[in-house]
Design a binder for these strands. Structure first.
Lengths: 338, 338
DNA sequence: CCCTTACTTGCAAGCGTATGCAAGTTTGCC
DNA sequence: GGCAAACTTGCATACGCTTGCAAGTAAGGG
């Protein structure tokens, strides 16, 4: 039963004081001789410093709180995995909170996070209300929003270039000769959903056109399916649909192909956003905008770590380039290279 | 900056002793008058007990360590979400460790977990070597293996009835009149992979037959694709393939359809295992064995909580029934009802 | 060789909470 | 009204660790 080995036990065995043991394990200076005695004794007893006791004094727990709302979107599991690895490399662990997107629930989680005095917070796919933003800033815990922007100033965030990516999709679809372009939008309560819609509309406007239909798909499969059915059930149904994320795009494709008997891209072109792994699977072969998860994760961790080290640092909004990935779900303009 | 409010501050404001505050928040008895004064003061100051200080004394951190290996298999994100909710209901948080499946890496994570003195550990999709098992038992931290069994005794585990499920698949495929039945197996280093293989072979043996081919797909998409190609590249290719999990089954279907130009189930029937959400999507419409995630999660949490409450309780191996879900990826025998 | 400077090391004081103990207060019952 | 029992409450200590401080020791320079 080695779970109760304390630094004092090690000290006794090594014949030094308890503070010597502490110094060896906390990286403070100690003579080579002492260090060796301590390490030897510690190894023998299976000693590891108690992180909670350490946290109480230093005020740093080595724990990052991660708040996640959607796990059905396969974008987030891979983000979680990458975040976990990247933070581990920096010496942090992840305390996970899954949460619905109701303000009350988010607030209660934030409460808990401040109680736990985590060293930092990352929220993924969580919309922050403004008062929550304030409370976080007030609690003084560094926080970075992953894949969500924040209106006004306040918190750091890392997103991809949602508007530019969507704009590129617009150009691409126009260049492909599509006449009636529609958009199953991402959840309009989220910045990603709004930015993609705005960028898309702007891109179409540049070409002197506009979407024939825009329906909020709420980042939900069922809603996306319903949106698709509604769009197609008109006199002049769209011949191209830009979908607010891949997860919904799969639903759109399924609906077009298996419920309406249409061909993609023969009858309707479909373009998504995210480039989750599944998008490359031959069953969908989805043309989509790639969010560079790895770079987004790296930036997130980097920003958070910097903010922990230097609490007064101004919040940053980082935006990672996102590029269109050409696959088979959308008609491709002749000679399109990008 | 309310992050440094202590029980002493609350005590002063409320005009009571620090221990009174502690008692109110730890549920010990206190008079109604005191409780009210304390709560009022606490609310005013925004006080929340410091979980780490509490953990130091009580020895319980309220944190469960979750060790996960595969996140590319969509079975685990949903399990994580459900686990998170179920544990939250019991008052626990989840500290996540993602890990490769190398023994060294697992060992280092276990080390960390014992250092953190988590109240319990859940491993998902992690194979435990026997010496690791011992070390965990010795550390005295309750642990439950989720979706992995354990040879010999030692640790509690929750799995579905992998062998029975696979046996049922065998009967189903035989009854469907398939003549050459193959198996892209789950990773043979994992209990689930082995149990499903054994159950499947046993089921076929009952019918007086045997698989025409068995290849380990390692729970990996690429390996499953390669296995499929190898199986089909023979004089008498299989007319049915049972795949060790859904995630690989999608790869098998993609390979059959898009690389080999075959029809599923026309030319080859495919059956998976897990029933991840995607299996129900029309693009795959996968006949598969449903692992009742929710019930598995509930059992896992229940077992873990029981073991925390009563440390000397004997480890249990819980096995949840798994039933075949009929969809469109496999030819269905006339009048098959189950 | 002595004095200054730089390191090591042990001592002791906390970090914020829970809890045994004793003193004080209320309640209940005859 | 008085006494025992039940309940509250404050005091003080402990949990395992880090860190300022002072004393002790090694190194360095004239």
């Amino acid at each position: 039963m080695n779970s109760q080995v304390t630094s004092l036990d090690v000290a006794r065995l090594a014949g030094v004081s308890q503070s010597a043991v502490s110094r060896v394990f906390s990286g403070a200076s100690a003579s080579a001789a002492t260090a060796q005695k301590v390490r030897r004794a510690a190894a023998e007893l299976g000693y590891r410093p108690n992180p909670w006791a350490r946290a109480m004094i230093t005020g740093r727990s080595g724990i990052i709180g991660l708040v996640v709302a959607y796990f059905d979107n396969p974008f987030y599991p891979v983000a979680l995995e990458l975040l976990s690895r990247a933070l581990k490399a920096e010496g942090y662990r992840i305390l996970v909170f899954t949460v619905g997107n109701s303000p009350a629930e988010i607030e209660s989680v934030m409460d808990e996070l401040t109680a736990y005095r985590v060293d930092g917070i990352i929220t993924a796919s969580v919309a922050m209300t403004n008062d929550l933003t304030d409370r976080c800033a007030q609690a003084g815990i560094p926080i970075v929003l992953f894949n969500r922007g924040q209106d006004g100033v306040g918190l750091s965030s890392v997103t991809s270039a949602n508007d530019a990516g969507a704009r590129q999709v617009a150009r691409f679809l126009v260049a492909g000769g599509h006449q009636r372009i529609a958009h199953v939008a991402g959840w309009q309560q989220s910045s990603t959903g709004r930015d993609r819609l705005l960028g898309f509309e702007a891109g179409l406007a540049e070409a002197g056109t506009a979407p024939v239909a825009v329906i909020d798909g709420l980042y939900d499969r069922d809603a996306a399916r319903a949106a698709t059915l509604a769009m197609m059930d008109t006199a002049t149904p769209p011949d191209a649909i830009f979908v607010g994320n891949d997860h919904m795009a799969f639903a759109v494709m399924d609906t077009l192909r298996h419920e309406l008997g249409l061909s993609v891209p023969g009858d309707v072109s479909v373009v998504g956003f995210d480039d989750v792994p599944m998008a490359a699977w031959p069953a969908y072969d989805l043309t989509t905008v790639r969010q560079p998860v790895r770079r987004m994760v790296d930036s997130t961790v980097e920003t958070l770590v910097a903010q922990i080290a230097e609490p007064d640092r101004a919040p940053q909004s980082i935006r990672i380039d996102a590029a269109l990935v050409l696959r088979g779900s959308a008609r491709c303009p002749e000679g399109w290279t990008e």
